[in-house]
Structures are given as structure tokens and as C-alpha cells.
Design a protein around this nucleic acid. Structure first.
Length: 208
DNA sequence: CTGACGATTCACT
DNA sequence: GTGAATCGTCAGC
């Protein structure tokens, strides 16, 4: 099924103050990448908000500012892709204004266009729910790498758009983020959002 | 320069 | 449910 017209999200979407709201609003939107003429798209079905300096789970906690995290302090609307465990590339969206290091981790997509390309990139034989389940898997399928850190999401290579799809309010579930046990009390914050019942949502069954 | 470790995934029990 | 993979990043010397 072809996607209807996708309207690219602009600065007014990314520059909002409340990263938790931006994260929730990203559910149902469409992530698009076009590398080497190969376009892949997927609907965002799971996200996590990272609330800057006051969030112990964030790379920018207590104002931490290093070469890697510098992009988080840029104005909203840029990509932040970093490597974890030496293996996986994780795709984040920088939000808020300059010097406020908010970000949203995109954890899962429902594939829409370019599935053959995704299969090629991941080496998987056929489409199943593991293709874009989990932040490492989705980044691989979409061709996202650490070198894409700093890319504007207002351009045509990597962007997020709205195709008119609206998740039902009742289908949006909030819960604690995954893999942030080290973050003390902040580990319990309901900063993870996903679409209930969607097969591409990651985490243990108890967290879906 | 060195060492510890991570916003994960996969194979295996 | 457990453990290994694998390397860039960062704090500390």
C-alpha cells in the first residue's frame, strides 16, 4: 500500500519545550531515509524521551557536555546517532532550543516502504516483526549510522513526516524506559511511549 | 595512554 | 534467563 502524501515536520514541532510531549507526538509519524537513491520509510511505534540535564538516564545529565553529546545542545530538529556496545547504532531526535539538551530515542518502527532494501541491509531473509523492532535493529534497517549525527531532519536525506495517521488515544501506552536501571529514581519515570498491541514494539512481553 | 563500560541483540539453555 | 560480542567514548592518571 503506497503512503499518502507525507508532510515533513518542521521546527515548530521539534523546538517545543516539553520533550515528553514531543516524544508522544512522534508516535504514528513516519521516519524516512533516502541513501544512494534507496528510500526506506517506517511508522514510529515506540519512543523514549530523555529530559536533558535533570534526567539521570540522559547522556546530558547534570549538564554533561562532550564531543559525543554536543549535538544534543543544538537546536531541535537534528539527528543524534551513537554507538552502543560497540555494535549498535541508536537513532535519536534532538528537540527543544539551543543549549537545552533534550532528545527522543526512536525504539521501533513498522516498515512501510523499501522493505527489500531493509532486508538487504539487515541480512534477514524475509519480513517479520524483528526487522525494525528495537533501536539497534531499526537503525540497521534504515541505514542510520553514527556518521549521520548532526544531520538536519528538515532536509531530504533523513526526515520525519506526518501522513495523516492518528493513533487512538487509548492505544498510546506510557511506561518506564528500557535499560536505564542505573538512573536511580529517574528509571521509573513514564517516559516511554508505544502503540498498544503493535507487533514491532520492543522489550519483554511484560513491557508491551 | 589505559581501563571500564554502555539508551542492545542474539544464540543458547 | 543468561552471557558474549565488540569498540567508541570518557574519566583519570
Amino acid at each position: 500500500m503506497p503512503i499518502s502524501a507525507i508532510k515533513k515536520l518542521d521546527n515548530s514541532f521539534y523546538h517545543r519545550q516539553r520533550v515528553v510531549t514531543v516524544a508522544r507526538d512522534l508516535l504514528g509519524k513516519v521516519l524516512v531515509t533516502s541513501f544512494d537513491g534507496q528510500r526506506t520509510t517506517g511508522r514510529i511505534v515506540e519512543v523514549e524521551a530523555y529530559n536533558g540535564e535533570i534526567d539521570r538516564a540522559s547522556h546530558a545529565w547534570s549538564g554533561r557536555r562532550t564531543r559525543r553529546t554536543e549535538i544534543m545542545y543544538a537546536p531541535g530538529g537534528a539527528a543524534y546517532v551513537y554507538l552502543i556496545y560497540g555494535i549498535h547504532h541508536l537513532f535519536n531526535v534532538v528537540t527543544n532550543k539551543k543549549d537545552v539538551p533534550h532528545a527522543v530515542l526512536v525504539r521501533a518502527l513498522e516498515p512501510l516502504e523499501g522493505i527489500p532494501v531493509m532486508l538487504q541491509r539487515t541480512g534477514k531473509p524475509s519480513l517479520d516483526h524483528t526487522l525494525t523492532r528495537g533501536p539497534g535493529n531499526l537503525s540497521r534497517a534504515m541505514g542510520l549510522l553514527t556518521l549521520h549525527t548532526g544531520s538536519s531532519l528538515l532536509g531530504d536525506t533523513i526526515f520525519i513526516g506526518d501522513d495523516g495517521y492518528r493513533p487512538k488515544r487509548a492505544d498510546i501506552v506510557a511506561g518506564p524506559r528500557i535499560g536505564v536501571d542505573y538512573a536511580g529514581e529517574d528509571a521509573a519515570l513514564p517516559y516511554r511511549f508505544y502503540l498498544k498491541g503493535n507487533p514491532y514494539v520492543s522489550g519483554p512481553k511484560t513491557a508491551r
